[in-house]
Structures are given as structure tokens and as C-alpha cells.
Design a protein around this nucleic acid. Structure first.
Length: 584
RNA sequence: GCCCACGUAGCUCAGUCGGUAGAGCACAUUCUUGGUAAGAAUGAGGUCAUGGGUUCAAGUCCCAUCGUGGGCUCCA
């Protein structure tokens, strides 16, 4: 956000101070308020309060004006070092603060910051006085519930989110950014563009893809399959349910049961809906004796899985209960590991580029305290991951001890058009399941060996990916992904016949085109196509019918004028073949 | 799951103090046949999320359930 007279740290100080000023205002309104914590966060700040009654939006307005008064009054912030004794006395009636004091290391010097009637246990630093905050660069955004210390067994506090910037212009830019996020919201666009729906009567978190969403998904899947076959993968199809034995053997009933739905009783046997595809792929592996000569095996599947998610976390396409993973399992020898990981990483990056996401950040998560598998295998696997990242020259953050108990992993986060990061790809070793299923292959030495197994989901889930894709392109999909590529607009009824000829020609060329033969005027037809974000609007009147041309309007509002139908087809086919994500 | 808010026509939303439900868009019909973002008229469309309660009377007040939104936690 913008240039700076103030460094990022200073902005953080500003925000942290704003949190204190907000607490001061809340204290005025609720003298009995108990205070949690109030940090600066990305783009703003919050403070958690324990209050005698729920806050309302009107309270927010009131708090904001109290804050503005405080800012105007130029009240100094005073820092003071105090002993633990003094602190305990000072925060006598503040149970949350007392808890924080108790948890501080003995040798830590405690500091408090005081301004007006509000004192807070706080490391600081703060601005010198409240007038260093700009009243017109401040806004309070929302009220939310938040557990004390994020623990659902502790009391729920009321959190107020606010934002403050260096000046009014920056605030306005940020608020505009928030509006842009709202405009691009995939739930809104999903409905407006008729892409998908969910149905409360039929169950939350379950997605229905409409014809246009279906078109896009088909394009994504076709491309995905083609790329996988080209890159040495084979595709599997496996069932949606499996007997209890399978999930006990895999260990999912032990470590993942809370994510699984209750079993179905089939002739007295328990069957579970699959939350993951891996055990099924392993069964395919186990159908015969495997030799090192046939490794590596790369098996992919668009596998639809069902996972229990708590009702409160469901969110459009981004967080659902049933979704299709673009899953794959790579089974290989220790010698092949490094090459395979590099291959997966390159493959993933290439596909992200094809979808128009060039900005990718990696996270390498290593062995946690509690883990299964031999340490040498962990080391080799982690090194393979690290080496691949380094060869590719990819920026990565190290998440020491952040791996799953069954293996280290690389996660890829992609950045969208608004600069937001989304975790999509995961490349994950599994030392658990090969062991549990006793997977083996015969090596060159004639002995049995345990293969390495790597799970990877590239796009993650098709639903989630679709949601991100919608927001990234704001619903204006690149030509190759657009569910309708051309809307043919006859000016008067007498042009409908020619319009149909053009449509047939485009269909022959594998372009998705529709004729708008409604009784509307041309302007209305254009408007409708424009709102549907259709790439090409082909306007046909007497002149075009006469010359065998189409008059091409792009959704960017650029008017290309009349051109022969074949020219348009050539242009479109070229853009589609190259998966051009920018031009039309 | 928890806290708060919300749920009225296909969509976006009005609906005052409890007194027989409204607009715009979309849809249908008719007229209009128009050259790059809305031609006009007419019409149809609602068990006010669901269930219960209070009341002479409930879209409106109360309770429960389901769902949605903003968060907390977790994750694809």
C-alpha cells in the first residue's frame, strides 16, 4: 500500500497505539470491561474484550467517535517499567492480564503503557501522543467472537477489528481494496455468472456445478489429464467408499477419524466415505509383486472425497465437505526420490503458469517431534525437497518441525491478482502407509525393499481452485477457460439465420458460441453479454451478412470492427492453443 | 462446534408502533426490428427459512432447528 514516510515498523506502532486508543474508548463505554490482547495485524489492529453485553454496530460508531476525541486531545503515552508485584496489583481486576503476567518469564522486565485512563501491559513501543494518529485515516471494521488465546475451551471474547493508515488517502485505498475483494467474491460471481450453487435443503458444503461452471471444469480437467499423460502419469479411478478394514490398516481411523463421516452399514460391515484416495491407490499397487524396474509409478486421480468440516468454517467453494482432489501418488526407489521431487515441482510450477499464476511461494516443513519412519529416510526425503527447491531457485520459508508425523512436505502458495496468497499445492512424503500396508518392491538384489511414497495434490481441490480462479480473474476468464467464448448478436430478426451459420462455423472450430436470438435490441444484447463477461461479442447486421464477416467487440470494450469469420476463428484458436491468459 | 448478525418473489432489497405483503432487475405476453452497455406496455410470480409459543391478531415479539455471513480453531 503506497509509498512511505514511515517504515513498516512505524506503521505497526501506529496500529498498536490505535488498539490502545480503542481500548480506552471501550473502557469509557464499559467501565467494567476486561481486556484480552490488542495487537497490530496486517492492515490494522484488533482488541479482545470481555464485556457485559454484546456489541452492536452502533457501539462501533460510538467507539470510533470516542477514539477521534482522544486523538484530538493529544494525550501522551507514558511508558513505565514495573515489578511483577506492582503489575499484579495494578491489574488486580483484570484476570486476562494477570494470566499473561503469570506466563511471562521471571526475568522479563514488565512494562506498562498509560494514556488517559487506560493502562495496558505492553512491550510497546507506542507513538508519543494520540495526535500522531490521524482521525481520518482510522476506521473500525467489524465485531467478531474470538476465544481467549484461541482455545475453544476458554471464554469467548468480543473482538473489534479496526484499521488505521498513515493518512486518509491510504485508508481510502485500503477500503477500496476491500470493496474490490467483495466485488470479486466467488460466491457473488458464482451466482451472477450462473457457475455453481449450494443448497441448504440438500446439505451445507456440497457444491452443484451449473452448465457454465461445468464447462470450465471440463476444460480444466481435460487440460489436467493431457498434461499428466504427457508427463508420465497414469490415471486411476477408485471407489468412493471402503470397508473399515481399509481405514484401520491405513491408520485413518486412528489419526483422522474426526474428519470422517459415520460409517454406512452394508450387510453388517462398516463402510466409510473416503476422505483421501491414498489407501485405494495402495491397493492397486498391491495387486501384484512389484519390481524396481517398473518404478517410479506416478498415479493420479481426480478423486472425490468427503471430509467432515465444522459448520462454522464452511465458506463458498473454498471450504466444503465434498470436493475433488487432483491427487497423485508417486511410488519410487530411494535413488529416484530426488529426480521425482524435482519433476513434481517443475510440473506444478508449469501448470500454475498455464493458469496465469506466476507468483509462487514455497514452504518446506520438516520433521516434528513425534514422527514415524526411520530418521535416515526423513533426512533423505527432506534433502530431496530442499534440493528441488534450490535447483528451481524458488523462494521458500522453512517450517522447522512443521511436517506431518508421517513425512516432510513442500506446500506451495500462489498469489492472486489482488496479491492474496492461497495454499494450493502440497507435496508430501508418507512413511506411514507404506509401512502399514507393507508395500514392497523387489530390488536389483532380489530382496524386498520398502518404496518411498509421495502424495501430491497440485491444484488442491477443483472446488477450491475454481473459487480462487473466479476471484483471480474476477469472473472474466481467459479465452481458453471461458464457458462461453462468443455471443453472436444479430441486430434484427432477419439476421438470425446468418447468425446461426456463423455459430455452426464456430462450433466446427471447437469454439463455444451462442446466438442471442431474443427480441431485445442490440444494445441490450451487448449489455447482457458484457455483464456475463463473454470474451467476444459478434455483432451481425446487413453489412456482415452481405460480406460474410463478423463485427467483433471484446469484453474489454475494444471494438475490432468487421473481419471474416475465418480470421476470428484463427485468432481465437491461436489464443486458446497457447492458453493466453491476457489477450482476447 | 462456539460468539454475534442475518434469512421476505429467481436475484438485490423495502416493509414504521404487531393489524390481510411491496419495489427494481430477471421471467412471460404483445408492440417495436434497432449498429456497439438497459425501447415500451401488460402480466404472472410469496405457506415472509422450518417447527413451536405469546396474542383477538405475528413477516414483525419469544424459543428451538436448519442455513448464510463475519470471526475463533483447523485445513485442500
Amino acid at each position: 500500500m503506497g509509498g512511505s514516510i514511515m517504515s513498516a515498523d512505524e506503521l505497526e506502532v501506529l496500529r498498536h497505539s490505535a488498539a490502545h486508543v480503542m481500548a480506552e474508548a471501550v473502557l469509557k463505554l464499559f467501565p467494567d470491561a476486561k481486556f484480552g490482547i490488542g495487537p497490530a495485524i496486517e492492515n490494522g489492529f484488533y482488541y479482545d474484550f470481555d464485556l457485559p453485553r454484546p456489541l452492536t454496530p452502533e457501539d462501533l460508531e460510538e467507539i470510533k467517535s470516542l477514539m477521534k476525541e482522544s486523538i484530538k486531545a493529544r494525550i501522551p503515552f507514558e511508558r513505565q517499567e514495573i515489578s511483577r508485584e506492582e503489575a499484579r496489583e495494578l491489574f488486580d481486576d483484570q484476570p486476562y492480564k494477570l494470566e499473561l503476567i503469570k506466563d511471562m518469564p521471571e526475568d522479563e522486565t514488565l512494562t506498562v503503557y498509560r494514556h488517559a485512563d487506560f493502562v495496558d501491559l505492553c512491550r510497546g513501543p507506542h507513538v508519543e501522543h494520540t495526535s500522531q494518529l490521524k482521525a481520518n485515516a482510522l476506521d473500525l471494521l467489524s465485531i467478531a467472537g474470538a476465544y481467549w488465546r484461541g482455545d475453544e475451551n476458554r471464554p469467548m471474547l468480543q473482538r473489534i477489528y479496526g484499521t488505521i493508515w498513515r493518512d486518509k488517502t491510504e485508508l481510502q485505498a485500503y477500503l477500496e481494496h476491500l470493496k474490490e475483494i467483495e466485488r470479486r467474491d466467488h460466491r457473488r460471481l458464482g451466482q451472477e455468472l450462473d457457475l455453481y450453487s449450494t443448497h441448504e435443503e440438500a446439505g451445507a458444503g456440497l457444491v452443484y456445478w451449473h452448465p457454465k461452471g461445468g464447462r470450465i471444469r471440463t476444460t480444466i480437467e481435460d487440460f489436467w489429464r493431457q498434461r499428466h499423460y504427457q508427463s508420465g502419469y497414469e490415471l486411476l479411478y477408485t471407489p468412493h467408499i471402503g470397508r473399515e478394514w481399509l481405514w484401520q490398516t491405513s491408520g485413518h481411523l486412528g489419526f483422522y477419524e474426526e474428519g470422517m463421516y459415520s460409517p454406512l452399514d452394508i450387510e453388517g460391515q462398516n463402510y466409510y466415505l473416503k476422505p483421501m484416495n491414498c489407501p485405494f491407490h495402495i491397493l492397486v499397487y498391491q495387486t501384484k509383486r512389484r519390481s524396481y524396474r517398473e518404478l517410479p509409478l506416478r498415479w493420479a486421480e481426480l478423486g472425490t472425497v468427503y471430509r467432515y468440516e465444522r459448520s462454522g468454517v464452511l465458506h463458498g467453494l473454498l471450504r466444503v465437505r465434498g470436493f475433488t482432489q487432483d491427487d497423485a501418488h508417486i511410488i519410487c526407489t530411494p535413488e529416484q526420490i530426488e529426480g521425482e521431487i524435482l519433476g513434481v515441482l517443475r510440473f506444478s510450477l508449469a501448470i500454475w503458469r498455464d493458469f496465469g499464476f506466476a507468483d509462487v511461494h514455497a514452504y518446506l516443513a520438516t520433521r516434528p517431534e513425534k514422527a514415524v519412519g526411520e530418521p535416515e529416510r526423513w533426512d533423505q526425503a527432506t534433502e530431496a525437497l530442499r534440493t528441488a527447491l534450490e535447483i528451481e531457485g524458488l523462494d521458500y520459508d522453512l517450517d522447522e518441525g512443521g511436517g506431518a508425523f508421517y513425512g516432510p512436505k513442500i506446500d506451495l502458495k500462489i498469489k492472486d491478482a489482488l496479491g492474496r496468497e492461497w495454499q494450493m499445492t502440497t507435496i508430501q512424503f508418507d512413511f506411514n502407509e507404506p509401512e502399514r500396508f507393507d508395500m514392497t518392491y523387489t530390488g536389483a538384489d532380489g530382496r524386498d525393499h520398502r518404496p518411498y511414497m509421495v502424495h501430491r495434490a497440485l491444484l488442491g481441490s477443483l472446488e477450491r481452485f475454481f473459487g480462487v480462479l473466479i476471484e483471480h480473474y474476477a469472473g472474466a476468464f481467459p479465452l481458453w477457460l471461458a464457458p462461453v467464448q462468443a455471443r453472436i448478436i444479430p441486430i434484427a430478426d432477419r439476421h438470425v439465420e446468418y447468425a446461426r451459420e456463423v455459430a455452426a462455423k464456430l462450433a466446427q472450430a471447437n469454439l463455444i458460441a451462442e446466438v442471442d436470438d431474443s427480441g431485445e435490441r442490440m444494445n441490450a444484447k451487448i449489455r447482457r453479454a458484457q455483464m456475463e463477461k463473454i470474451p467476444y461479442m459478434l455483432v451481425l447486421g446487413d453489412r456482415e451478412a452481405e460480406d460474410g464477416t463478423v463485427s467483433v467487440r471484446l469484453r474489454t470494450e475494444e471494438n475490432l470492427g468487421a473481419m471474416p469469420v475465418d480470421d476470428l476463428i484463427a485468432r481465437a484458436q491461436e489464443l486458446i492453443a497457447s492458453r493466453n491468459n491476457r489477450d482476447l
